[in-house]
């Protein structure tokens, strides 16, 4: 029996707080099974699985899903390359303006999405770049880079710099050192950063509304469906699937970076 048990009042308050945060999500799930499709009526008059079939046969859902997956995958890939390079430069070397660059890399995630969105939109306009798949990718990459950068820079700081020198000393050139020493030491950080970046990109709305042309990513599609009531529970089915799909990478990222607090490669 533990002596430091929390008082009952605190337990109830904590439970109420958690319920407040998570019950609405459960509501969304429940409405995916309702038999009524015009207005959200509580309690649902009946339960059915037919909306899953309807969703399956809607080509617009598949298009939006495919676009979202492609955007997230490519933004994450760009972020992995740029974020790692930037983290390596900032944590490994000293140069004029290093702190400023570090701040400017992180800024996009601190800035409200609407500012990133508007500024990108006007920049694309000024440069006469037509809105396309690639403008969405660029918009998403701005904040995906930050997530990867943050993960990678933390790992680089915890990895002893003499590991790289030791590898070079033992005959490995830059590429071999990256492959045999650097990559294995930062791999879990990159995987975690990449998963978070993917999840962020997958449900991004604000920046996307400013940088997309006619395309609809999945979150944008859901927003449109809400104002145009037609087979409403289809939206709930999609929402449920999205919640489940994004939960997995975030959980994965959490488990991968857990328990890596010791400094890698330190002798003492």
């Amino acid at each position: 029996m533990r002596s430091d048990r929390a008082p009952l009042g605190l337990k109830i308050a904590a439970g109420a707080g958690l319920a407040f945060m998570h019950l609405p999500i459960v509501l969304i799930f429940v409405y995916a099974f309702t038999t009524e499709d015009k207005s959200y009526q509580w309690p649902p008059p009946g339960l059915t699985l037919k909306w899953f079939g309807v969703t399956w046969n809607r080509p617009d859902v598949w298009e939006a899903l495919s676009l979202s997956l492609r955007v997230a995958a490519i933004s994450t890939a760009i972020a992995l390359v740029l974020g790692t390079l930037c983290a390596a430069a900032v944590s490994r070397t000293k140069f004029f303006g290093r702190e400023a660059i570090s701040l400017m890399v992180i800024l996009p995630i601190a800035l409200p999405g609407i500012i990133t969105g508007i500024s990108l939109r006007s920049a694309f306009n000024l440069a006469d770049i037509p809105f396309s798949f690639w403008t969405i990718v660029l918009g998403h990459a701005t904040f995906c880079v930050v997530v990867v950068y943050n993960n990678a820079v933390a790992r680089f700081r915890r990895t002893s710099g003499s590991l790289v020198e030791a590898s070079m000393d033992l005959g490995a050139d830059g590429f071999q050192t990256f492959r045999h020493v650097i990559l294995p030491n930062i791999a879990t950080a990159l995987l975690a950063g990449g998963m978070l970046a993917f999840a962020l990109s997958f449900d991004e709305v604000i920046v996307t509304t400013f940088t997309a042309g006619q395309q609809q990513t999945l979150p944008i599609w859901m927003l449109e469906e809400l104002v145009r009531p037609r087979e409403r529970p289809v939206t709930n089915v999609v929402a449920m699937m999205v919640a489940l799909v994004t939960l997995l990478p975030i959980l994965g990222a959490y488990y991968l970076t857990r328990g890596t607090d010791t400094v890698a490669g330190q002798g003492k």
Partner: peptide
Amino acid sequence: PPYKRHVNTVFQDYALFPHMNVLDNVAY
């Protein structure tokens, strides 16, 4: 460059590769 010199170094913090076992460290 360091990897083309016939000198080797024992580092102050040893700089052993944490993701490899001792044998792979020595055989690096």
